[in-house]
Lab assay of single mutants.
Amino acid sequence: RLRTTILPEQLEILYRWYMQDSNPTRKMLDCISEEVGLKKRVVQVWFQNTRARERK
């Protein structure tokens, strides 16, 4: 499996959503993934990793 590259524009959108809610619902993940143009699972893992980084 290839690692997904997240573009700066996509990152900006993801962080904007993250500021609103760091733990989005499944429905929100659907909306975010549509807006960003990434698979739902990629967005979900990005949120998990970002929460983990914040805890450090």
Rank of each mutant, 00 (worst) to 15 (best):
Q44S: 11
K56H: 13
I32N: 02
E34Q: 13
Y15M: 15
L2W: 07
I13T: 12
T25A: 05
W17P: 03
E12P: 07
D30L: 04
Q48A: 12
N49M: 09
W17K: 13
Q10R: 03
Q20L: 12
L2D: 15
V42I: 07
C31D: 14
R3A: 07
L11Q: 14
V36C: 13
Q10A: 01
P8M: 05
V45H: 10
E9A: 05
N49Q: 11
E35W: 04
R51N: 10
M28F: 03
E9Y: 07
M19I: 05
R55C: 13
P24Q: 01
V43M: 01
R55A: 13
T25K: 10
I32V: 05
Q44R: 11
V36P: 08
S33K: 00
Q48S: 13
L2N: 14
D21R: 04
F47M: 03
W17M: 08
I6D: 03
Y15W: 14
R1H: 11
L7S: 15
I6Q: 04
R16D: 10
M19R: 12
T50E: 15
R51A: 11
R51D: 02
K56C: 09
K27W: 05
I32P: 02
V45E: 14
K39G: 13
L29P: 00
N23R: 12
E54Y: 09
T4F: 04
T25H: 03
K56P: 07
L7D: 15
L7K: 11
P8K: 07
N49V: 08
Q44M: 11
V45P: 01
Q44I: 09
Q20D: 09
Y15T: 15
I6V: 09
W46D: 00
R3V: 11
K56W: 04
R53M: 12
P8L: 14
R1E: 15
E12M: 04
R55Y: 10
E34P: 00
T25I: 05
E9G: 10
P24H: 05
L2Q: 13
G37D: 03
E34G: 06
P24G: 03
K39Y: 00
S22I: 09
V42Y: 07
G37M: 04
V36D: 02
Y15S: 12
W17E: 10
T50D: 04
F47A: 00
R26C: 15
E9N: 07
W46Q: 01
K40Q: 12
R3G: 10
Q48R: 11
R26W: 12
Q48K: 14
